[in-house]
C-alpha cells in the first residue's frame, strides 16, 4: 500500500512540476515574444478609455484609452528582468556572506551574521520604501534594493547548509594542503550546497515578483507610462467595477508566473529532501 501511495505521490509531484513548467513557459513566451505580437504600440492612445473588448481591442482599452492586450504583451519584460536581477543578486550576495561566514568561522562569522541580523530587522517592503524615498525611483535601484533585502535570509540558509560541508574531510584536507580559500569555496564547498541554493533561487524569484509588483502598486516601483503588469493593476483599479479586464489580465499573468515558479521550486525542494533523506 505504501508503495502504491509513493508511486501515486510521485506522479502527482511530477504532475505538479509539469504544471509549473507549462505555466512558466506560457508566461515566458509572452514576456520574450509578446513584443513582436503587439497589435498597437503599448503607449499609444488608440481609443476611448475603458472601452469594452471588441474586434479591434481584444481585451478592451485601459484607463487612458491604450490597448490592454498590447500593454500586457509588452509589460512582462521589465518585471521579469527586475525579478531575475533581484533574486540573482540576493542569492549571490547571500551566498557570498553565508559561505564566507561558515568557512572562516569565529569573529568573521559573528560579525557577518550580526550584520545580517541588522538587515533582517527591516521587513523587505519597508527596507525598499525607505531607500526608494531617499534615492528616488528607478527600476535598477528597486531591483538592487530587493536583492539586498533578500541577502540576510539567503545567507542564513546557506551558512547553515555550508557548516557541515566545511567540517567535512575533503574540505579539511584541501585547507590543510594550502589551497587558496577562494578555490576551496568554489570547488569544494559550493557544490555541496547546490540543492539549497537551487531552492532558494526559485523561492526568491517568486517573492521578487510579488515584492516588485506590490511596490509598483504602492506607487514606488516602475514609473508610468511604462507598460508593466504591477503598474497596470494600480493604474486601472479605479475602473475595476466597470472594466475588470485591465486589472484581472495582468493579475492573471503575475499569478501564473509566481505560481509556476512556486510549483517548480517546491517540487525541486521535495525531490532534494527525498534524496538527501536517503543518504
Amino acid at each position: 500500500m505504501n508503495g502504491n501511495l509513493s508511486v501515486l505521490g510521485r506522479a502527482m509531484r511530477t504532475g505538479q512540476a509539469r504544471l509549473g513548467l507549462v505555466l512558466l513557459s506560457v508566461v515566458g513566451f509572452v514576456v520574450l515574444f509578446g513584443h513582436f505580437l503587439m497589435p498597437y504600440a503599448p503607449d499609444t492612445i488608440v481609443g476611448q478609455p475603458l472601452a469594452d473588448p471588441d474586434g479591434s481591442f481584444l481585451l478592451g482599452t485601459d484607463i487612458l484609452g491604450r490597448d490592454v492586450l498590447s500593454r500586457l504583451l509588452d509589460g512582462g519584460l521589465t518585471l521579469s528582468w527586475m525579478a531575475v536581477l533581484a533574486a540573482g543578486l540576493g542569492v549571490f550576495l547571500g551566498c557570498l556572506v553565508g559561505l564566507t561566514a561558515a568557512y572562516r568561522g569565529g569573529a568573521v562569522d559573528a560579525v557577518l551574521m550580526r550584520a545580517m541580523d541588522v538587515l533582517l530587522s527591516f521587513p523587505e517592503i519597508i527596507f525598499v520604501l525607505l531607500f526608494v524615498s531617499m534615492l528616488g525611483r528607478s527600476t535598477l535601484l528597486t531591483s538592487v534594493l530587493v536583492g539586498i533585502a533578500f541577502m540576510p535570509g539567503v545567507s542564513r540558509v546557506l551558512r547553515g547548509a555550508a557548516l557541515p560541508v566545511v567540517a567535512s574531510e575533503y574540505v579539511l584536507w584541501a585547507r590543510a594542503n594550502g589551497l587558496p580559500p577562494r578555490q576551496v569555496l568554489l570547488r569544494e564547498v559550493l557544490p555541496g550546497v547546490t540543492s539549497p541554493l537551487m531552492v532558494e533561487t526559485g523561492m526568491r524569484l517568486v517573492w521578487a515578483v510579488a515584492a516588485i509588483a506590490s511596490l509598483s502598486y504602492l506607487g514606488f516601483g516602475i514609473a508610468p507610462p511604462a507598460a508593466d503588469w504591477g503598474l497596470m493593476v494600480g493604474e486601472n483599479q479605479d475602473g475595476l467595477s466597470v472594466a475588470p479586464l485591465p486589472v484581472l489580465a495582468p493579475i492573471t499573468l503575475i499569478l501564473m508566473m509566481a505560481l509556476g515558479g512556486n510549483l517548480v521550486a517546491e517540487s525541486v525542494a521535495r525531490t532534494v529532501g527525498r534524496t538527501e533523506g536517503k543518504r
Binding site: V206, S214, L255, L259
Partner: peptide, 8 residues
C-alpha cells in the same frame, strides 16, 4: 495563495 501578493 503563497504566490499571490497581499494587495491582490
Amino acid at each position: 495563495f503563497t504566490a499571490l501578493p497581499a494587495f491582490v
